[in-house]
Design a protein around this nucleic acid. Structure first.
Length: 160
DNA sequence: GTTGAGCGTT
């Protein structure tokens, strides 16, 4: 889509450059060189863009499988996200780990959220709930849904 | 630097 535009742009630049150089009483060879150079650069850019557009096609190994957010409570204050991630990774794939910290002081509040696929989530709950982690009994359950998401910017509240 | 039931940010 955009590559076509860039090629078109390069062609336009080549033609315009050709005309300008020709009008500025330079040699025809110079105008040709300019035009060819512009075209070549445009084509080269298109090739690079194509290759780059093909390469970033990894990740998304799970696709849009149903994910469950787990609430993890009674965490030791010295626990960090890496430890929690590695601990939950032993019972399923961990998509994300978030240990909630106080926004004012930045200190950990002792609980967090772990996002996993549903099957792994149940497995992790059964395996890690009330599991002794660093002298603390973990509390793992399904997390309640996040705060009522304010839908975008309410410019005008009008029920149709 | 502390504390110990709980459910939360781009």
């Amino acid at each position: 889509m955009k590559s076509n535009t860039s090629v078109l742009l390069s062609i336009v630049i080549a033609i315009v450059g050709f005309a300008v150089i020709k009008l500025s009483q330079l040699t025809i060879d110079g105008a040709f060189l300019f035009a060819i150079g512009a075209l070549a650069s445009g084509i080269a850019l298109q090739f690079r863009g194509t290759k780059k557009s093909v390469s970033p096609k990894k990740e998304v190994s799970e696709g849009d499988f149903s994910t469950t957010t787990l609430y993890v409570g009674n965490l030791p204050y010295r626990a960090n996200e890496m430890a929690i991630r590695s601990l939950f990774s032993e019972h399923g794939q961990v998509l994300s780990v978030r240990l909630m910290k106080d926004k004012h002081t930045g200190k950990r509040r002792g609980f967090g959220f772990v996002e996993m696929p549903e099957k792994d989530a149940n497995n992790a709950i059964n395996a890690l709930n009330e599991f002794e982690f660093q002298e603390r009994s973990l509390k793992v359950r399904e997390a309640n849904e996040r705060a009522p998401q304010a839908e975008s910017a309410p410019t005008s509240d009008k029920p149709l």
